[in-house]
């Protein structure tokens, strides 16, 4: 037998390539190489990863239909194997992969729906954290409020879409009462977060995504509000900040 390391390399290469011959020395009960038996391993690898994606992307799967979703996912698994045994990390690049697939161009919102599903999954598994009490901010002198750096809850995710991706996602996970959403419907910014046990998803008012993204990038409150004001002339800092505080989405505030 070749050294185990070499045989394993051949085995791994054959798992990834259906044209690859059965690794020498891998035999069926009659002592002969058996391509169909080897294909069981190849199929186990692919189908378990496809199942993992199907579980992580239920709305994408519903929008594509079972057969088309599995074919798309199968293709993805041939390009992208997990790099860790923690499968809940697998499939992060699946939305981008979908977005670049020519045959799916007629569903231009699909990649954004998948991004929302990914954000949901990340919010679901992200670390727990304790929010600060709203009163903490009240103790900051008014003239220094703009210098405050706020730390957002680790489950906060923003998905920006030029389509009504959040509404489309909500309709397709609710599984009932489908109503048409016109393609020309305005874009939506979605906030996903899990301040306690459940993941919430809601549409952000104008300027909200700029505000949260600036805070997430570590910018102080004053600068974040300016960026939001640049995106929405009527941006109301107090209203947005109160929503974040009352939603339990700020876990630290420092001058």
């Amino acid at each position: 037998m070749p050294p185990w390391a070499d045989l394993q390399s051949t085995f791994a290469a054959a798992l990834r390539d259906p044209q690859h011959p059965v690794p020498s020395g891998c035999i069926g009960p009659d002592g002969a190489p058996d391509a169909k038996r080897f294909a069981i391993y190849r199929n186990n690898v692919a189908s378990s990863l496809i199942d993992c994606l199907a579980e992580s992307y239920p709305a994408t799967r519903r929008l594509l239909g079972e057969e088309c979703f599995r074919e798309t996912a199968r293709w993805y698994t041939t390009q992208e194997l997990p790099c860790s045994p923690i499968l809940l990390e697998y499939g992060a690049s699946f939305p981008d992969f979908i977005g670049e697939l020519e045959p799916l161009a007629e569903l231009p919102y699909l990649a954004d729906v998948a991004r929302i599903e990914r954000a949901w999954l990340e919010a679901y598994h992200a670390a727990e954290a304790t929010p600060i009490a709203p009163a903490v901010l009240a103790r900051v002198p008014a003239h220094r409020a703009g210098e405050l750096c706020l730390t957002l809850h680790p489950t906060v995710r923003i998905v920006r879409s030029r389509f009504a991706a959040l509404s489309i996602w909500q309709l397709n996970v609710a599984a009932a009462n489908l109503r048409p959403i016109p393609l020309e419907a305005r874009g939506e910014d979605a906030l996903l977060c899990r301040p306690a046990a459940e993941v919430y998803a809601r549409a952000m008012p104008e300027g909200g995504a700029e505000f949260i993204c600036a805070l997430a990038a570590g910018e102080p409150l004053g600068l974040a509000a300016e960026r939001a004001g640049g995106a929405c002339i009527n941006f109301d800092l107090t209203e947005h900040l109160t929503a974040l505080l009352e939603g339990g989405l700020i876990i630290d505030a420092r001058l």
């Binding site: 037998m1 798992l15 391993y41 690898v45 990863l49 194997l81 997990p82 790099c83």
Partner: peptide, 16 residues
Amino acid sequence: WSSHGGHFFNDLLPVP
């Protein structure tokens, strides 16, 4: 075994 060359195959593969 299930990992090789930086990839995780998500299957329990045989050992000689």
